[in-house]
Write a protein that binds this DNA or RNA. Sequence first.
DNA 1: CAACCTCATTCATAGCATTGAATATTATTT
DNA 2: AAATAATATTCAATGCTATGAATGAGGTTG
Lengths: 120, 120
Amino acid sequence: MNEVDLYPYQKEVRFYKVLMHPLRLAILDLLRDGEQCVCHMEAVFGLRQAYISQQLMVLRSAGLVEVRREGLNIYYRVIQPEIYTVIDAMRRMTQTEPVLPAKPLLPCHCPTCEVTQVQL
Amino acid sequence: MNEVDLYPYQKEVRFYKVLMHPLRLAILDLLRDGEQCVCHMEAVFGLRQAYISQQLMVLRSAGLVEVRREGLNIYYRVIQPEIYTVIDAMRRMTQTEPVLPAKPLLPCHCPTCEVTQVQL
DNA sequence: CAACCTCATTCATAGCATTGAATATTATTT
DNA sequence: AAATAATATTCAATGCTATGAATGAGGTTG
């Protein structure tokens, strides 16, 4: 049977699969302002570290984020910012807004959170 | 445990899940030029009708397409064209092009295909 | 109304994603 | 080098998605 080759779509499909998860979208939103350590995400979302790491791994193996180590902390940053053009287009379509907690839900001791706490 | 409410992301997530499938992307590409009947899709893609119908159902229950009956044929059309802004943003990011067969892979007798055949 | 189109639905199976729990790894500090 | 802190990985159970096969439902034509 002579059928169309849908293989060329796989590249896009892979990215849609990555975006198909609420926590991964939330992480990408958090990284809009620049790199953050895992510890900070843990505090902001109030979710277990292992779970966050699992989703970060998905983002990493998709080539969307990269990692930088500084002492004990590991900082993630987006290396393919074009992903935000996709996310923003979807937001316009669904008329939704990113929902991030204004303050971290849990106390944290990473540099980012220390600064946040001083500001309070 | 005090954790973030990721529920607001579900609306977007639902659409990403819809886009996460090569045939559904191909169908949306085919519908860029306006409505098409199932029969035509069958011919263009060379895939079994039931399979195409299944994916059309997913597009329909996501509210992306609607249906119009004309005699024996059923025509699908996109009712939320903003979806193309998302798809196009993704295409720019992945630097891919939509791949549709220039001519239907199979003969078809729907109005659209008759016209195509006359043009040959 | 019976045969025939076109399309939709149901069902079953296999595969993949999600997510919690436990544990491993890497770097730092003492 | 042992203890600790931050992050990663593995495992297992469960649920969701994909897809083929079979069948059903609506219209149409003779």
